[in-house]
Design a binder for these strands. Structure first.
Lengths: 141, 141
DNA sequence: GTTGTTGCAAATACTTTGCAACTAT
DNA sequence: ATAGTTGCAAAGTATTTGCAACAAC
């Protein structure tokens, strides 16, 4: 399966006249092989650790290319650093951020999605995209 | 009513050993008298226009003081600039941002709030706060 | 007079960009 | 050869901070 998505990316980029260089592949790998939501700098550091040559500029540019082509998703938690996540099979979801640990939990709720559409419609709009983040704390036993 | 909230602010700040200076009052006025959601720079510019002396530093510091004391709310739309809104009588609400015009519409939905709590609970968490933004487009007739 | 506040300019943090060297096709 | 890509360093943007002068109590 991993091979598949890599070739899909390669193809999509090539169709746009773009190349899937080792730097771009490295950025993608960081995102694909991690369940965490890293920021650009973390991704940069991780690639460096693997002795692949990159610059921050390239990381940012690559994240942009991947996001524009919908292979990754940006996550703005509101603390100044944008996190990224690979879009693999699992599709749309929102995030719950634990205020104690910083852990990011993904969730999806059909009713919630429908309710949003309903609310927007009531105001004469349709929802194009949304961000929904719950800042939470564990329920103590 | 306006007098009331101003004295409340004054009191709360004084209880903390802080002062409600003309700069701070000016910042508050900008927020209170506007239904729009301005960013720090806009607020700074508007105060300047009224020939009150301020600096950006003071605006930022004041916004911080007011936010910490819950008189205003920060709004992170994800475009790099943080917007602010006064908390007047109308309490919690979320935002709908029109992608065509940039207009920010406030909304509140009880069911939505409950649903969020339910979802968090299912994961063993309780919601402390949340951000929920719908990026929308008008339904064309 | 003590403590908080202001404004300036410099610093910060994250991200973007210009450009010359480089690389894939 | 041509067109895309990289890395560097510089620039950009929004915000924060150190500090000396100033204002409020």
């Amino acid at each position: 399966m991993k091979v598949d998505i890599i070739s899909r990316i390669k193809k999509v980029l090539q169709d746009e006249g773009l190349r899937f260089t080792k730097q771009r592949k490295a950025v993608w790998n960081e995102l694909e092989n991690s369940n965490d939501h890293h920021d650009a700098d973390k991704i940069y550091e991780n690639i460096k650790l693997k002795k692949v040559s990159v610059s921050r500029a390239t990381v940012y540019r690559t994240l942009d290319v991947l996001a524009k082509n919908k292979f990754i998703r940006k996550l703005d938690v509101g603390d100044g650093r944008i996190r990224y996540e690979a879009k693999t099979s699992k599709d749309h979801h929102d995030h719950m951020i634990c205020l104690d640990t910083g852990k990011i939990i993904e969730f999806f709720d059909e009713d919630l999605e429908n309710l949003q559409d309903k609310i927007a419609k009531k105001h004469g709009y349709k929802v194009i995209r949304h961000t929904h983040q719950l800042f939470v704390k564990p329920i103590k036993k």
